[in-house]
């Protein structure tokens, strides 16, 4: 017997809710700002990433998803900062999934469909970053709680992530959703 896909109704609800709710501009800016801080923090954990990005200093990438977008400029240090909406060298557009579908794909470890257009060299560097740079959460935790507890917490987090991925993949499979 085929049951109704619970993810489809949840995705609809998310889409309807997102359409009605528009966060205030100051909140959007603050969220974008926090995202850039986190991105820079991750980049600073990987000196090679900063070196590669420094070669693209001054270039601007526009990241877009549905109605949301942000422009990031590369600074001389090989880090990023928010840039005004005034032209860009590279466009990275996440295909129009609903917030729920996007979250589910990320939980399953599936990279969402992305359209890239613009400067080829810059695109190659951004692609290298996406493939090679990961947040070292254990390193950050160790500064707060010490090495051994940080290692235990990181292992627990990885187990939880694996379980979530299995659950998301299994539920989608049971409901005939795409793998």
């Amino acid at each position: 017997m085929r049951t109704e896909n619970p993810f489809a109704s949840l995705a609809d609800a998310f889409s309807r809710g997102a359409g009605r709710l528009r966060p205030p501009q100051w909140l959007v800016q603050e969220m974008q700002h926090r995202l850039v801080l986190f991105l820079n923090h991750v980049l600073q954990q990987e000196p090679q990433a900063m070196e590669r990005l420094a070669g693209q200093s001054g270039r601007v990438v526009r990241v877009a998803w549905r109605d949301f977008w942000m422009q990031l400029a590369v600074t001389p240090a090989g880090l990023c900062e928010l840039a005004p909406d005034a032209g860009h060298d590279l466009l990275v557009e996440v295909a129009g999934a609903s917030p729920f579908e996007l979250g589910r794909d990320l939980a399953r470890g599936v990279r969402p469909a992305i359209r890239i257009a613009g400067d080829v060299d810059f695109a190659a560097e951004v692609n290298w970053l996406v493939d090679h740079v990961r947040w070292d959460a254990e390193e950050d935790l160790s500064r707060l709680v010490g090495d051994a507890p940080a290692h235990a917490l990181a292992a627990m987090g990885q187990s939880l992530a694996r379980a979530l991925r299995r659950f998301a993949g299994g539920a989608a499979g049971r409901n005939g959703d795409r793998p």
Partner: peptide, 8 residues
């Protein structure tokens, strides 16, 4: 300073 971040 070549790069400046701020944390609110």
């Amino acid at each position: 300073f070549g790069h400046v971040d701020y944390h609110n």
